[in-house]
């Protein structure tokens, strides 16, 4: 078990390193040059000044040397400083990570808290109008891009109820109410796809479990509630569990656009801005953190898997 976690952890580090290399190289393929972006507005910039700035940022080195230096520093926890503000990347991330984690947890809560009951209801009332309706909602939820849903929510709430989220973001410490109201819409927009995926998967896995022979073993003598809760639900949650881990990936990806739409100063917005400004160290630092969070969550899911299902062995 410990050995399993350690090994998975090491794999995780390797994956994050590979992702970092990939993103590092891809960033350089994006047209546009950070030095020109920074100095473009200044009239009469001489080539010397440009070269000097590039040297300051370490961009005069060969690409592989830059990559190596970044990886070597990152291994010690140093992601460099922002090209833009000069602040350490770790400080920028530390400031913004809690906001994004809050949004992610809220979105995941939307997925699970709505998705699980909807999936179970759908299965227990198979082919009822409720089931049919939920199926339509699920397909819609899976098909609608989260940023578009976010925009729709804002637009129609404003149009129909003359309501719009607060314009200025407040941290939970400053004003919890305002913060939650602000976060609600992006959390819903981010969580709906997960809700739909979980509901669909749980529905089919529940239907399969309900038809399985072991349910027939307990059903004759047991009240329907016991059959459903202790046997059917627990068994059908097993496959859904790993889906929840995967949803974290979608949610993290979605924060980039939704935080920007809703003006939430989290890591998603930081990534968005940094990509626009070609602030390579900040983008890379954020990518490492996102990757690590995703891998960590899925490791926890896999470990908990074994707690739910005794058939799972860690080998």
């Amino acid at each position: 078990m410990v050995e399993y976690v350690v090994r998975r952890g090491l794999y995780g580090v390797l994956v994050v390193a590979l992702v970092t290399v990939f993103v590092f190289l891809t960033l350089r393929l994006i047209p546009g040059d950070v030095v020109r972006l920074q100095l473009a507005d200044a009239p009469g910039v001489s080539p010397e000044q440009i070269a000097q700035r590039a040297a300051q940022l370490g961009l005069d080195q060969p690409l592989l040397a830059q990559l190596w230096r970044f990886l070597a520093n990152a291994a010690t926890g140093d992601f460099g400083t922002s090209f833009q503000s000069g602040e350490p990347v770790t400080a920028l991330i530390a400031e913004r990570l809690p906001t994004t984690l809050q949004l992610g947890v809220m979105a995941l809560a939307v997925s699970v808290v709505l998705g699980v009951p909807l999936g179970l209801l759908s299965a227990v009332r198979q082919n009822s109008w409720l089931d049919q309706g939920l199926r339509v909602v699920s397909v819609a939820g899976l098909s609608i891009p989260n940023f578009w849903l976010g925009l729709l929510l804002v637009t129609y709430l404003a149009l129909w109820f003359s309501w719009s989220p607060p314009l200025v973001y407040r941290t939970p410490a400053e004003d919890l109410g305002s913060n939650l109201v602000h976060m609600a819409l992006p959390a819903i927009a981010l969580g709906v796809a997960g809700m739909a995926a979980i509901a669909r998967m749980l529905r089919s896995s529940m239907l399969e479990v309900l038809r399985s022979p072991f349910i027939r073993t307990v059903r004759p003598g047991a009240p329907e509630r016991t059959v459903l809760v202790t046997h059917a639900v627990r068994n059908s949650l097993v496959p859904v569990f790993s889906l929840i881990g995967l949803q974290v990936g979608h949610i993290l990806g979605g924060t980039v656009i939704l935080e920007s739409i809703f003006a939430i100063p989290g890591m998603g917005m930081l990534i968005f801005e940094s990509v626009q400004l070609r602030d390579y160290p900040v983008v890379l630092g954020c990518v490492v953190v996102y990757g690590a969070v995703f891998i960590l969550v899925n490791l926890v899911v896999d470990v908990l898997y074994g707690v739910i299902d005794p058939r799972i062995r860690y080998a």
Binding site: S212, P213, F214, R216, N235, V238, D309, P310
Partner: peptide, 27 residues
């Protein structure tokens, strides 16, 4: 009705099924 049936099934009448591999809850 179900209630009355439950008192009989599994209690007065028990059933053993064909496939023991899948007739027990794996969890």
């Amino acid at each position: 009705d179900r209630r009355a049936l439950r008192r009989i099934r599994g209690n007065e009448i028990a059933m053993i099924f064909q496939d023991p591999m899948t007739s027990l809850d794996p969890l």
